[in-house]
């Protein structure tokens, strides 16, 4: 009797979700490929969008999945950028090796800062995360000989990717390179969030008290997640350094951290896709608004954020569900 009752039924439902996601993935990759041909004069901007998506995906892992709100994510991105840049200038200009160095730098900074940050919550955590980024900012600024200080790190001249594809003036190689790295990062993150550890991250977000009560050492799990996110943000920073062949202090700045959080909130936290849509919307609006009015473009962004927060607090990804519910009620 009991055997009849005990069954596993979610396969069909999960299958539906998977096929929808795969369809969405194909659409997104097709769009990214199409944009290359449709907007050949905007490759620099589109590459910046791809790089920023990597950083916002990393923030989504920390904020959206594990529920850790930080305003210092640029510390991890900038560490990766400077490490990969310095590595390219002084040791090796191999892009893939540079990615590894960037990932390691981001992960190491995340691990050691996480030892302090993950003990805090709420406003204290926000303040501490800003402080960590500021300390790094000033440290990099003061080490002019190595980092270039406020002039930025110059002299990066990357080798061709895989020895075949040289970074060109028009940014064609840079675009494909950034897109390839983003696709790999996205796949890895999707595997991670569906894994047992991904479930643990969601559990910590939902109830750290209950996680402790089931025997999870929450602090160390958070440090692991933050370190992983640091590695990913570091990869984003490394790609940024490699494709622009420049690293500026802005890559460690507060503005970058704050913008990344706004992008994630715009798109919708805890879904990975939110990072993609939020970044694309924010940067596109920013791009066009700034070209129309270089001084007051933040006004448009502010209105956009207000609209999203009040109308769809789940971000633009929550819009279809909201519409469905609304139409369902109308019927």
């Amino acid at each position: 009797m009991e055997a009849d009752i005990i069954r596993h039924k979610p396969a069909k439902r999960l299958g539906g979700i998977f096929s929808r996601r795969i369809l969405l993935d194909i659409c997104l990759i097709s769009a990214a490929i199409a944009f290359f041909f449709i907007f050949p004069n905007n490759l620099g901007f589109m590459t910046r969008v791809l790089v920023m998506i990597i950083m916002v995906l990393s923030l989504d892992l920390v904020l959206g999945y594990a529920g850790v709100a930080t305003l210092g994510h640029a510390a991890l991105f900038g560490s990766g950028a400077y490490a990969a840049g310095i590595f390219a200038v002084y040791i090796s200009a191999n892009p893939l090796l540079g990615l590894v160095v960037g990932a390691l730098a981001g992960a190491i900074i995340a691990f050691f800062s996480g030892l302090i940050l993950m003990r805090a919550t709420g406003l204290t955590l926000l303040m501490l995360s800003i402080a960590v980024a500021q300390v790094l900012f000033e440290l990099v600024n003061s080490e002019r000989d190595l980092t270039g200080g406020s002039d930025g790190l110059l002299g990066i001249d990357m080798d061709p990717v895989l020895g075949l594809y040289a970074f060109d003036f028009y940014g064609k190689t840079g675009y494909w390179y950034a897109l390839a790295v983003l696709v790999v990062v996205f796949i890895l993150l999707r595997v991670f969030v569906a894994s047992p550890f991904g479930l643990v991250a969601r559990g910590i977000h939902a109830s750290p008290e209950r996680m402790r009560a089931i025997g999870t050492p929450v602090y160390w799990r958070l440090i692991t997640i933050y370190t992983l996110a640091g590695g990913i943000a570091g990869i984003g920073g490394a790609v940024s350094a490699q494709v622009t062949e420049l690293v500026s202090l802005e890559s460690l700045g507060f503005n970058l951290s704050a913008e990344a959080m706004i992008m994630l909130i715009l798109g919708g936290i805890g879904r990975l896709y939110g990072a993609i849509f939020g970044t694309v919307i924010f940067m596109t609006v920013h791009h066009f608004a700034a070209s129309v009015d270089p001084f007051n473009w933040l006004f448009v962004i502010g209105i956009l954020v207000l609209l999203v927060v009040y109308v769809v607090p789940e971000g633009v990804l929550g819009l279809p569900e909201k519409l469905r519910k609304h139409l369902g009620m109308a019927k």
Partner: peptide, 9 residues
């Protein structure tokens, strides 16, 4: 098994 990073939960 909670620390497995790969494979579905």
């Amino acid at each position: 098994k909670s620390q497995h990073w790969f494979g579905r939960a």
